[in-house]
Design a protein around this nucleic acid. Sequence first.
DNA 1: TTGTATTTGTAGGATATATAAGAAAAATAT
DNA 2: ATATTTTTCTTATATATCCTACAAATACAA
Lengths: 111, 111
Amino acid sequence: MRTYLGELEELIMLTVGVLYPEAYGVSVMDELKVQAGRTLNISSVHSVLIRLEDKGFLKSYMSEPREERGGRRKRIFTLTASGKIVLEESQLLRNQLYAMIPKPAFDFKLT
Amino acid sequence: MRTYLGELEELIMLTVGVLYPEAYGVSVMDELKVQAGRTLNISSVHSVLIRLEDKGFLKSYMSEPREERGGRRKRIFTLTASGKIVLEESQLLRNQLYAMIPKPAFDFKLT
DNA sequence: TTGTATTTGTAGGATATATAAGAAAAATAT
DNA sequence: ATATTTTTCTTATATATCCTACAAATACAA
């Protein structure tokens, strides 16, 4: 199986980290809207969360009932050790490449 | 059209920046192998380069013939202004999210 | 002109991303 | 019990991205 993170997969993993320990489908969707300005269907978020859990980058458990009005139990997601490693590695790689770009190639005025 | 960069698209754009002004299919493939340890088919690289040019994030021109043994002319790729902007924005967003992750969520020892 | 090297280009399949419509579950309120 | 709320889960469909295999073009050498 491929181990590279898709672009949305990585964003959602970061969001799960940010929301710790309250990351579940709807909160992830809302946070992505706030932080990234990205509007996603709840089904899109769910399918990515499940795929990431299948890959072993996230784990989940069903939360206890809440005090509020109603609603099904939330499935709370957190990062796994391998998920954190993959996140760190991809971030590190891009930062290294970014630092290696010669000035002229990235000078806005010249293009 | 969607403006988000795929994971490989972003890596390839960074590599085009790093190789400036000598980025073409084969050099991008080789550099990705060296820098990222990622083995890619030359066709994969080409299709991504072309897609990025269609999106307006890269531009290209055909180089002059070389002195060496043989071979078709190279298509040299460089970043466009909008390509640089997209690269910067996606990097910034992830760095921000990364910084927002609370310590416990990212403590290796606790997971 | 035939051979060899190098690179681009074409075509199609596999995986990832995205939307929509709705069923099912699990909780509280009335 | 019945209604209402919130969320997960399922199914279907469409498009974008990623990947592989192979064909075509372009250069120099013999």
